[in-house]
């Protein structure tokens, strides 16, 4: 042991350690860059194809740099399907879902974390176990229910359910976050005679911005890419969202690959932007809360 400590404090050991660290860094960087490129390749191919002329698309071996660069593919793709109508529909649904994701899970999570009441833990266990129920089991009766309410063919089935708690996973995440906020703050507020509503809105919410932002971004991404919901509930072209519009675009213009790639790129773009903007909060938001079993 003594020998080891002696060795570790010696000069040569530190140089060796440094060299080892540099080699490790280089190896890891190479590995990550190689993997990263394979992950990015499909994207680049998407962009490249979206800018090609039909003739170049079917060239073999394939070319990477489009020549000529067909920017017009983008305007044509957007004309081929009612892009702005689909965008409007998507934004409408997305907005409500983001609002719901900010309000609903935090509200419920407060009841599960900052108030002590009998039966709370049992109900929380039930909440966790609902995550294990495959959605296919409830899908059909929920459709029938919305049908009886006359909501099929409207945006309501895609919006209203989000306000009922916003899903077990979100509530769970929010609760975990609330648990990290010192209880003393709540106790102090209680001593001052503040109600739970006040504590929730004025103390917990402002302190939970990273978690709320995470849920907001999750909801944005989730409802932007939602496919099954619109597929089941929306009717004709006037109601389609981008995700579902894109699919019908696929059948309509089967092998017009340039347009398909251009449209796919446009629909994906907001996700990329949203993710880059929220990247830090996003990864932190999840890390902060931690997901422990």
């Amino acid at each position: 042991m003594q020998e080891a400590i002696k060795y570790r404090s010696s000069e040569s050991w530190r140089v060796k350690l440094k060299r080892k660290a540099i080699i490790k860094e280089i190896v890891l960087q190479c590995l990550l860059i190689f993997l990263g490129i394979t992950f990015l390749l499909p994207f680049l191919w998407m962009i490249s194809t979206s800018l090609k002329s039909n003739e170049q698309i079917f060239k073999f071996p394939p070319v990477w740099i489009p020549n000529p660069v067909m920017w017009s593919n983008y305007s044509k793709a957007l004309q081929y399907f009612p892009f702005f109508r689909f965008l409007g529909n998507t934004l409408y649904i997305t907005t409500f879902n983001v609002i719901a994701a900010i309000l609903a899970p935090s509200f419920v999570a407060y009841g599960f974390s900052r108030i002590k009441w009998p039966g709370r833990d049992i109900l929380f266990l039930i909440l966790l176990s609902t995550m294990m129920i495959p959605s296919q089991v409830t899908m059909i009766p929920v459709f029938v229910m919305f049908k009886k309410m006359g909501w099929v063919g409207t945006f309501k089935p895609l919006i209203v359910p989000a306000f009922f708690g916003g899903g077990a996973f979100s509530i769970f995440l929010m609760r975990q976050f609330f648990m990290t906020i010192p209880q003393e703050l709540v106790d102090a507020a209680k001593v001052d005679g503040c109600s739970h509503l006040y504590i929730y809105w004025r103390i917990m919410m402002p302190l939970s911005k990273p978690a709320i932002a995470t849920l907001g971004v999750f909801a944005f991404i989730g409802s932007w890419r939602d496919f099954l919901g619109p597929l089941i509930y929306l009717q004709d072209e006037r109601q389609y969202t981008l995700a579902i519009g894109l699919r019908y675009f696929l059948t309509q213009y089967g092998a017009e690959w340039a347009y398909l790639m251009a449209a796919s790129a446009v629909v994906s773009l907001p996700m990329v932007v949203a993710f880059f903007l929220a990247q830090k909060t996003f990864i932190q938001g999840i890390t902060f809360t931690g997901i422990k079993g």
């Binding site: 509200f107 039930i126 909440l127 409830t138 009766p141 009922f164």
Partner: peptide
């Protein structure tokens, strides 16, 4: 009472979108 008040949205959702549909299916 407060606890139930806060979890009410989820509880309603549980009944409407989970429990009832499971029975119906």
């Amino acid at each position: 009472r407060w606890g139930l008040f806060f979890i009410l949205p989820w509880l309603l959702g549980l009944v409407i979108f989970t429990a009832y549909p499971i029975i119906m299916s």
